[in-house]
Amino acid sequence: MRTANVSEHFPALPNILPELFYVPTSSDIAAAATATHAPRFLLLYGSLRETSYSRLLTLEAARLLEAMGGEVRIFDPHDLPLPDSEPDTHPKVRELRELAQWAEGMVWCSPERHGAMTGIMKAQIDWLPLSIGAVRPTQGKTLALMQVSGGSQSFNALNQLRILGRWMRMITIPNQSSVAKAFLEFDDAGRMKPSAYYDRVVDVMEELFKFTLLTRNVSGFLVDRYSERKESAEQLSLQVNQRVL
């Protein structure tokens, strides 16, 4: 890792540790190894209804990602327990966490209920910890957001999901999809009808795919933080001092 000579180049930063200060350059990204496997996506939806429009919209997203060459998994939230009501060894919790670690990008799709995302959607996200040992199952991975509404177009669930995406340290893409009066947007076979809403879903999946290709090889570099390098160095120093004593 390259470091900057803080005393020479940054005399106005006396509180920076020179040995831990890193100056990013475009060559860091250019030097990253290029993955050749298909991009991997995990899709979550937030309804258990037999006719779930968030699930139908998720299926449309899955078809688009697969048509672009992606590998897709959709998590079925049936039988997922409420957070903290069961140990994290529960089969559905293990399945969800393993899929989150496998994925390089995600799609979260929730109905809007009482002006918010559903409890089903929030429970899935709450079962995903920021870290599992040394592994961070969501950090640095891409995320696309969608919602369905029974009435007029709204962005309440999307706004909440975007906050959660940031909290989970994900690269949440700018574009998003909100489908109003979703019960009118799908045919009897469960396929989404041609519309501006459908075109927006295509836009969002294209953007997610592009962002994933751009970032999946360098996600570790993108989320590498000075504060965490400093904390790791302090912990290592403490361990060394304890051994000496």
Rank of each mutant, 00 (worst) to 15 (best):
R63Y: 01
P137Y: 00
R73H: 15
M117C: 05
R191E: 12
S154V: 04
S177Y: 00
L161Y: 02
M205R: 10
G46H: 07
V201M: 14
E104L: 00
A67Y: 04
I171F: 15
A12V: 09
I163E: 11
S26G: 15
R243V: 15
R166V: 12
E95S: 03
Y53P: 03
L245K: 14
H37A: 15
P14Q: 03
I132P: 00
Y198H: 03
Y197S: 11
L82P: 12
W108M: 10
R136S: 05
S110W: 00
W167N: 14
Y53F: 04
P91M: 04
V23D: 14
Q242C: 09
K181T: 06
S178I: 06
T138F: 06
E231S: 01
A4H: 00
M146R: 12
N241G: 01
G69D: 01
V240Q: 14
D88E: 04
E50A: 13
K230L: 15
N159F: 13
D79E: 11
E231N: 04
R243K: 14
E50H: 08
A30I: 00
P137W: 05
V201C: 09
Q147R: 02
S27L: 10
E112F: 10
L57M: 09
Q160P: 08
T36V: 13
Q101E: 12
Q139N: 12
G133Y: 04
E207T: 11
N15Y: 14
Q235F: 06
G69C: 08
Q235V: 12
F211A: 09
D88N: 04
L145M: 03
V72D: 02
V244F: 11
Q235D: 12
L236C: 09
P83S: 06
G150C: 06
W127V: 10
E206M: 03
M121F: 11
L96Y: 07
G46E: 11
T215I: 13
D224Y: 00
R40L: 06
V179D: 00
P83L: 15
Y226M: 02
S149G: 11
L130T: 05
R49K: 10
T142E: 11
L56T: 01
I125Q: 07
F41L: 07
L65M: 11
M146C: 15
K181D: 14
N156R: 14
H78M: 05
E8R: 15
L17R: 15
Q160L: 03
V240F: 06
D76K: 06
E60I: 00
A189P: 06
E234P: 07
E66G: 08
L158D: 05
P174K: 07
L56I: 02
A196D: 07
R97K: 12
N175A: 15
V6T: 12
L208K: 02
I171G: 08
V202Y: 04
H9W: 09
L57E: 03
A196F: 10
R169C: 13
G119L: 10
S26R: 00
S26P: 09
Q235S: 04
E206T: 12
R225T: 04
A67P: 10
P11Q: 08
G69A: 03
P174C: 02
S47Y: 11
L245P: 05
A38P: 02
L145P: 07
D187G: 07
M205A: 04
L238I: 08
K181G: 01
G119M: 12
F183I: 13
L222H: 07
S52K: 05
F155R: 13
